[in-house]
Simulated assay, not measured.
Amino acid sequence: MKKAALLLAALATVTLGTPATAAPRLSAQSIIVNPVPTDLSVRVWVDRDPGGNGTPTYRVGEPIRIATTVNEDAYVYLFNVNPDGTTDQILPNHLSGTHYVRAGQTRTFPAPGDNFVFNVSGPRGLNKVLVIASRTELNLDQLSSYRAGDAFATVKPTTTPGFAQALSIVVNPVTQPVPQQNWTSDTVRYTVGR
C-alpha cells in the first residue's frame, strides 16, 4: 500500500495479514488498513505522478485529476484528507456517474467530458487521497451525507481520527455485512505548495 495525500475543491459549485475476524486498523501511512489478505487490489494516483510513488506538488488553483484501477469489478470510494485533518468525499458524487469500476479499467476523476473540474485549494501542506474498493456496495450513512442540491457529499467527521473511526465502522464485519476479504484500500499523497 502507498501513503495517500490530496486536497481538492470541486468547480461546479480519500494489508497486512492477521486473523479473518480482526478489525480494520488505523495507520499513519494509509488511514485505514484491512488486516485480512485479499485477492482484490486497487491502485490510486494523481495526474502528476502516474506511478503513484512520489509526492508531486500542486499550486492553489491548479487543476488535478485522480485515477484509479482495480483488478476485479468493484465499487470504488475516493476521499481527500486535507492537511488540517478534514476530509472531502470525492467519489461517489452526483456528477461522475457510477462509482462501479470494471476489472482492469482505469477511471479518471473528473473524466474527460465531465462538466466540472477539481482545482487544488488551501491550506498548503501534505494531502492524502484514500481509495477503498469493495466487491459489494458500502453503506456510507455513518460517514457522509448529501445536503439538498449538493453534487458532493459532506463527510460528517471533521478530524482525521474521526474519519478513520467512522470508516472503520463502515467496513467492520460486525456492524456491516462486508466480509473483510471483500475490500481493500490504497493511498497516494501530494503537496499543496506555492
Rank of each mutant, 00 (worst) to 15 (best):
Q180F: 04
L8H: 04
L91Y: 08
W183Y: 13
P50Y: 05
T13I: 05
P19N: 15
R147Q: 13
T55F: 04
V36S: 06
G85N: 03
N71S: 09
Y146G: 07
T87L: 13
L26H: 15
F116K: 05
L140T: 01
E62H: 07
D88H: 15
I90V: 15
V44D: 01
V76F: 10
P173A: 13
P179M: 05
G61M: 02
R25D: 04
G162D: 04
P179T: 04
T154R: 14
K3V: 05
D84L: 07
A4N: 08
Y146F: 14
R189C: 12
E72N: 02
A10C: 06
S145M: 11
S96G: 13
V171N: 02
V101L: 01
S30D: 10
L167W: 01
G17V: 10
Q181A: 10
T191S: 14
E137G: 11
R59N: 11
T158D: 02
T69N: 03
V117T: 15
S134F: 12
S41Y: 02
A9N: 10
A9T: 02
R124T: 12
H94Q: 14
G162P: 03
S121Y: 09
S168K: 09
A153S: 14
T68L: 12
P173E: 14
Q142V: 09
F118H: 07
P56K: 15
V171W: 05
T86P: 02
I31E: 10
Y75S: 12
V14P: 10
A164M: 06
A148P: 01
Y75P: 02
V171Q: 06
A153H: 04
L167Y: 01
Q142S: 13
L40C: 07
Y100L: 14
F152Y: 10
P161E: 07
P157Y: 02
G125I: 01
T154W: 02
T13R: 09
L7N: 13
A133W: 01
A22T: 15
G51E: 13
F118P: 02
F116N: 08
I90A: 14
V188A: 08
L126I: 04
K2N: 09
A103F: 00
S30A: 14
A133F: 03
S121V: 01
A151W: 03
G104I: 00
T106A: 12
R147Y: 08
G122M: 07
L6P: 03
P56G: 13
Q105A: 08
K2F: 12
L95G: 08
K156F: 07
T57A: 15
N71Y: 01
P35N: 09
D73T: 02
D88Q: 14
T18W: 07
I31F: 06
Q181V: 11
R107K: 13
P110D: 08
R48H: 09
V174P: 00
V70A: 00
Q105E: 06
T55Q: 09
A133E: 01
Q180W: 00
Q181H: 15
G17M: 08
W183T: 03
